[in-house]
Measured scan of single mutants.
Amino acid sequence: MPSETPQAEVGPTGCPHRSGPHSAKGSLEKGSPEDKEAKEPLWIRPDAPSRCTWQLGRPASESPHHHTAPAKSPKILPDILKKIGDTPMVRINKIGKKFGLKCELLAKCEFFNAGGSVKDRISLRMIEDAERDGTLKPGDTIIEPTSGNTGIGLALAAAVRGYRCIIVMPEKMSSEKVDVLRALGAEIVRTPTNARFDSPESHVGVAWRLKNEIPNSHILDQYRNASNPLAHYDTTADEILQQCDGKLDMLVASVGTGGTITGIARKLKEKCPGCRIIGVDPEGSILAEPEELNQTEQTTYEVEGIGYDFIPTVLDRTVVDKWFKSNDEEAFTFARMLIAQEGLLCGGSAGSTVAVAVKAAQELQEGQRCVVILPDSVRNYMTKFLSDRWMLQKGFLKEEDLTEKKPWWWHLRVQELGLSAPLTVLPTITCGHTIEILREKGFDQAPVVDEAGVILGMVTLGNMLSSLLAGKVQPSDQVGKVIYKQFKQIRLTDTLGRLSHILEMDHFALVV
């Protein structure tokens, strides 16, 4: 994948999101292997301009796509893939009243899908469409860049269908997702969380590099694949309309690839034109409109599966009536509230959605109805927002919020430890010299600072030695090549209790 991002070429006709291997024109390309080798690009942008032909009021008969309808489940399912879809609609009884809503608040519980998330729908649909058009064949390999849930859905379907599955996901995604993927037989590649989507090191860039190296491999490409919004247009939206008897006044959905909100909203605009569509985008993402909503100094966020630093091709923002931004604290607070007060075992993005819903639905009156999409299960986040310690460490809970008995030293300040200034190293000294210094002084790690004293990161003896043994660096290389740029900081005025929580999850903390 090139470091400079080429513009994806656009073909003359058809839909841009065809499933299957992508040609340089962004659509299915038939021909000899030699032709494909000559024409197939190194990668295709996940934010390529959409060429979708959908228009409100256009006859369904003019759609270029294969459409399906929700099917009634048999008493005995032939395999677990038949437990994807037909998820329950559940009334939220307490939270709406707590925040003064007059309307009825309903939750579409997508964590009841077989793999635990709304992404099971698009995973199965992308595979079925690729099999139907002859792209996927027995023994082929599926590769997908994902925040985890699409990966789980694909790995689940691949396990049943017999495909090899490789999932490329950023490091910030939970260990629970990784464990589930491994249990399903998927191979996992992790990428830096802070890598831009168009960087060769991003999950998108690495996935395309693997595709170019592995024979008979395919990126189904949830960011561009029409099967993504079509899955929701054909099934999720129809289920909502049936469950609500066609009567709903507002739908609120958090947005990642945009397939969920695009597919549902398009069908609702056709069948229930008075329904307002509300999009939820986390602070630090750029999906919301108008652009002024996205202006923030924050560039990272903890909530998973929603928000991006690019506009995915499948996201149709014209069908969203209003956007709201959400933050991590309210997302996790509301997710825990949904679990504790409503018994809905949902993930953090569901918290984002409901946090926005109780604001947006203030305009609705008694007798009206708001539906929220709860995308995934708490299963993926047992060591994250479900953990009091994690919430404390991230600053989303305060010590006084917890009532468990603490040891005698818990409320003492870090400054009472009488710490001395640490050994520091410059980023320009060599790895070999740094190892000598650390061994001589008896230290395992040291902060790396520039000549102005600005902290650049941390270097550890173990990481340097393993990097040297693996051949990633040489003793003569500058130590700046092996620094940890993500590390926890703590102030002298913070409590030892807070430091204790940090050290339970990290090997060190830097006192500043």
Rank of each mutant, 00 (worst) to 15 (best):
E131R: 01
R18L: 08
T135I: 04
S63M: 08
Y163W: 01
P2I: 10
G263A: 01
G246R: 13
D234M: 15
I143W: 04
S175R: 06
S73N: 14
R58L: 08
T141L: 13
N93V: 01
S174L: 04
P59T: 15
R209Y: 09
W43V: 13
K271C: 15
V180D: 01
P74W: 04
A155T: 11
P74C: 12
T236F: 11
S199P: 01
P200V: 09
K25V: 06
P273G: 09
E9Y: 01
P59R: 01
G85V: 15
T5D: 03
K271S: 12
K97G: 14
L230R: 04
D249V: 03
E239S: 07
E37M: 01
Y223F: 07
A207F: 01
S199G: 03
A265G: 09
S174M: 01
A71F: 09
E104A: 09
I142Q: 01
G14E: 08
H203L: 06
E9G: 11
A237C: 10
K267F: 10
P138E: 07
P200C: 04
S174Y: 01
D234S: 09
R51C: 01
T257P: 01
P6A: 08
L77S: 03
L251G: 01
T236M: 12
V255S: 01
S174N: 04
C165M: 08
T87A: 11
K39Y: 01
G258A: 03
T13N: 12
G256C: 01
K211Y: 06
T68C: 09
K137S: 01
I219Q: 01
A24C: 10
P74L: 12
K102W: 06
P200R: 11
A253G: 09
K25F: 08
A195D: 01
T13C: 01
I188C: 01
M169G: 06
K247A: 10
Q55R: 14
P2M: 13
S23W: 13
G185R: 13
P12D: 05
L230K: 12
K25N: 12
L251N: 07
C275T: 01
G20Y: 01
F99I: 11
H17F: 07
V160D: 03
P41F: 01
F112A: 04
T141S: 11
K269A: 08
R18A: 13
S199Y: 06
L251F: 06
C165R: 01
P41G: 07
A71C: 01
C109D: 01
I264S: 01
F99D: 01
E62V: 07
V10P: 07
I264C: 14
K269P: 01
S217P: 08
R209G: 08
P78M: 01
L124S: 11
G96A: 10
L210C: 07
F111W: 01
Q55M: 15
T87L: 05
P88C: 08
T87D: 06
C275A: 15
K30D: 13
L42T: 06
D221F: 09
E104F: 04
R45M: 08
V160I: 05
L105W: 01
S254W: 04
C244S: 01
V160A: 09
P145T: 05
E110T: 01
T135E: 01
T236H: 06
D35F: 01
E34R: 01
P215W: 07
R58P: 10
G256V: 01
K172A: 01
A155V: 06
L101E: 01
E144V: 07
S175L: 07
E40C: 01
R125E: 14
S32P: 14
E37D: 10
F99P: 01
R161E: 04
H65C: 01
M89P: 01
T5Y: 12
A130Q: 01
Q242P: 05
V10R: 07
T262W: 04
E37W: 15
R161D: 05
R276E: 06
C15H: 10
M173L: 06
D79Q: 09
E270W: 06
T141N: 08
A71R: 15
T146P: 05
D249K: 12
I219K: 03
V90A: 04
R164V: 06
K267V: 09
P33V: 13
L106Y: 09
R125H: 09
T150L: 06
L105V: 11
R58E: 15
P33S: 09
G258E: 05
C275F: 07
D234H: 01
D35W: 01
P2Q: 10
G263R: 01
D234I: 01
L184V: 04
K97S: 14
E213V: 09
T13I: 08
R18E: 09
W43E: 06
T235M: 10
A60F: 06
K271L: 09
V180Y: 01
H203K: 04
K137L: 11
L156G: 01
N194V: 01
S227N: 13
S73A: 12
D238L: 01
H65I: 05
P74Y: 01
T260I: 09
K247H: 15
R132I: 01
T257A: 08
